[in-house]
Computed example of a mutant assay.
Amino acid sequence: MSNWHHRGQSWAPELITPESAGIAADPRALAGHLASADVREILDRHQALLIRGFDVTEASLAGVMPLLLPERLAYIHGNTPRTKVGENVYTSTEYPPEYAISMHSELSYAPAWPARLLFFCVQPSATGGATPLLDNAAWLAALDEPLRREFSGGLCYRQYLHGGRGFGKSWQATFETDDRAQVEKILAPTGTQWEWTAGNALRTRTVRPATIRHPATGEELWFNQADQWHPATLGEDTMRELASIVPADELPQSVTFADGSPIPAEYVTRIRDTGLELAHDIAWQQGDVLLVDNLTLAHGRRPYSGARRVLVAMSH
């Protein structure tokens, strides 16, 4: 949506309510409506779909989800802590509520990523906790030309995944298996380099572009997680604390330019702040279902207080 800027904050997801659809306010009626809807066309036109007012619960979500996600994927190679609560359904990132989660497209650092994300609000937070959305073409356009040029050569993402005890995620949790051979089978076709350490940890190294072209429109999209993987965005206190307990080569994740040269801290803070500033907030209501085109839109999370439970699932 290259005209995101011109419309300012006027962009919003396509909204389906019982009133707009002319149907009963219950999950069964919603499922019937979705069965005859062209979800792909809706996402192509609007990039996101918000379904509100149907009293969807965690139990009744099972009747709705297959109509929105053709084939649910496991959160394999994911870099954030989540809890699996159903068949390829997870809690959203379990990150301290007082911090924002910066804008990103899911698994944009990986050689393969989901095409669609589905979020479901079981319980909205007392305050805050919105999920911001941002058009990736608009994010790219908002970054200055010198910065874009610096990133044109691509990025190198590195992970250090411990073998069961240590800081960050284990390789077992990351790949949902205890079998090294299975991990290698997942990594082998992706171009990722890996090595096992003497302490049963796994190091991976993946070189990826910072932008990609939309397969249908050819539009260039900002599509990376440089700011999330860079220690500068953790804040100085956290960086110092980490450095005192974790050797540099055992950081759970880190990123450089593709040639190995460091990315200046000012670049990643500018990228992060630009994304969060431009984004459109989705303020959750209980029972909301949000479907997002993961290629064209980035998402994040605003800080919040009180209990909050939002589930996420993904598909091709």
Rank of each mutant, 00 (worst) to 15 (best):
Y157R: 08
A279M: 08
S170H: 08
V89Y: 01
W229H: 07
N79E: 07
L107Q: 13
A48T: 02
L61M: 10
A307V: 01
R180D: 02
L251G: 00
V246L: 10
A59D: 15
I51P: 01
G235T: 08
E176R: 12
W222Q: 07
E150M: 09
T17Y: 07
I101M: 12
W171L: 12
L311V: 13
L30E: 06
Y304M: 04
D249H: 12
H5E: 14
S170N: 09
Q193V: 01
I212C: 08
G63Y: 04
A110W: 15
W222F: 15
R309K: 14
L43Q: 05
R301A: 02
I23A: 13
Q9K: 15
H214K: 02
T296L: 12
G275Q: 10
A313V: 02
T57A: 11
T190E: 11
G218T: 03
W284V: 08
G300T: 05
L140S: 08
I23R: 11
R308Q: 04
W194H: 15
H5L: 12
Y157M: 11
V85D: 01
R165D: 11
S2T: 15
P231S: 09
Q47H: 12
L202R: 01
D55H: 14
S36L: 09
A29F: 08
D237H: 14
H6T: 11
A138D: 01
S10W: 04
E106T: 10
P97L: 08
I245L: 13
R82K: 11
A198R: 11
E58P: 00
M314P: 01
A142F: 13
G128Q: 06
L118R: 08
D259K: 13
Q225R: 00
R7L: 14
G287T: 03
L107R: 09
A59S: 13
N88S: 11
G300S: 09
S105K: 10
W196L: 07
G166A: 07
N200V: 04
D144T: 00
M239A: 13
H230L: 01
V89D: 01
D273F: 08
R45T: 13
T211R: 10
Q253E: 06
R165A: 15
W11T: 02
F54K: 00
N200W: 05
A216Q: 14
G32R: 03
Y75S: 07
E241S: 14
A232T: 00
C121H: 10
H33V: 00
E14G: 01
S305I: 09
D259R: 10
A216T: 13
A142Y: 12
T274R: 09
T177R: 09
I245D: 00
L242I: 15
A198K: 07
D179M: 05
L107H: 12
